[in-house]
Design a protein around this nucleic acid. Structure first.
Lengths: 227, 227
DNA sequence: AACTCAAAGTTGACACTGTCTACATCCGCT
DNA sequence: AGCGGATGTAGACAGTGTCAACTTTGAGTT
């Protein structure tokens, strides 16, 4: 964490160069998103807050969207790191490593709600530009499929079940829970007895694994979602 | 597009009053959102398309956000209706009624991706204004808890499990899946053999029910998400 | 049939936005 | 020393959401 604040120097010379503007912009943007919706984000306001002309940020980002894309890519990389972290805790085996992954995901959302909202809310990035975002997301998902494969080998997940379906369902469930929790929709039930985020997360992970432990139903039923 | 024909003067009162502007605005907005991200939405452009002055829509909506709120509320009401529909198909019993609900949810997302994205993506509506949106969302969730209660009575869901945790986990999973599917993240695995949206939806519903069928683990473990 | 008056639509203004273009300044390199 | 690319600035432009004051409309009441 290199925390070199150039603006609190002994001589606060209004220097032409900001020297670290790129990170400063990202930081300020994130700060702004803490208590404002993304659609209220203003490049000019960020620049103003940083004591810099309204066009200065454009030396580091092609557009406003590009800034958000950078934040999102960072987010996915952090998430991947968190996954790998819970893998390398060393002695963790199934089912604990599974729980650890789920916990990591939910915690990431709770600790970085603003980035998380961006990551899965965007809709900006369908166009195929922003390949960095796409790749980072793909990497994170790969952690999950590896986790499932390990679970299959260790006998906690039925081997006959489609690897991608299982992975995707886990991703879906944990993701959905995270989204609803940090979108404040969890409050609806939060006041019920014996219910809180921690307990629910554990409940979620256990039930998921339980559902996969038996390979009785194969999920090859008739089309359920087609018209 | 200009209909100045005197013979059609009866109904198409192309004059000062639009007479139905509110619905027209909602419709055009929805149409726009079909192929544009919400942040590109322009009130003035909508008004222009409708051949009306740029302030005319403001006679029917307090603000731009208000229009989106109206669409979202509509969405939740439609979703609730779809739930009730799959309940009143008559002879449906567990587990079919459960599958029907899951199917209804996913289908709703697939058929109304733009509204759905708005519904769960907004972040606008935390402030407590837009109570209409909040209430409509609550109603939809209630359908789910009733479904779970029925499942408990019919022996498909362990009765010792917390009603709200089960409901919330179902909501989370199905919601997460829907989000990821229509955010195009499903394509990642869509090309795997024997995997498509329909098959996956069924798989999801079956595994969920399977996880809940046994009440062995109670989900009262130690806090998994707190620091 | 004339009058009223709120609802519905219009026009013009204002402050603000993102981004284009041309220009100014800085700093590391030869 | 001075060149050149990287970085920051200033001004302009089209476009936005929304406020305020105006005009038109048409259904009811007299």
């Amino acid at each position: 964490m290199i925390k070199q604040d150039t603006r609190t120097r002994r001589t606060p010379k209004k220097s032409y160069h900001h020297d670290g503007l790129r990170e400063a912009v990202l930081e300020k943007t994130l700060l702004f998103l803490r208590d404002h919706p993304v659609q209220d984000l203003s490049m000019r306001e960020i620049a103003r807050d940083l004591g810099v002309s309204h066009m200065a940020p454009y030396r580091h980002f092609a557009s406003k969207e590009d800034i958000l894309a950078a934040l999102i890519e960072n987010g996915f990389r952090q998430l991947t790191a968190k996954f790998q972290e819970s893998d390398q805790k060393g002695t963790l085996i199934y089912p604990e490593t599974f729980y650890a992954h789920v916990k990591a995901y939910v915690q990431f959302f709770l600790k970085n709600p603003d980035v998380a909202r961006l990551m899965f809310t965007s809709g900006y990035f369908d166009k195929g530009d922003f390949t960095g975002v796409h790749d980072a997301g793909h990497d994170a998902f790969s952690c999950l499929t590896r986790l499932v494969q390990r679970g299959q080998k260790e006998g906690f997940i039925g081997e006959t079940q489609n690897l991608y379906m299982v992975s995707f369902m886990i991703w879906s469930s944990v993701h959905g829970a995270s989204v609803l929790i940090f979108e404040k929709q969890f409050q609806e039930i939060d006041q019920a007895p014996d219910v809180d985020v921690g307990a629910f997360t554990r409940f979620l992970a256990e039930k998921l694994l339980l559902g996969f432990s038996s390979a009785k139903s194969q999920g090859a039923g008739q089309d359920l979602a087609t018209d």
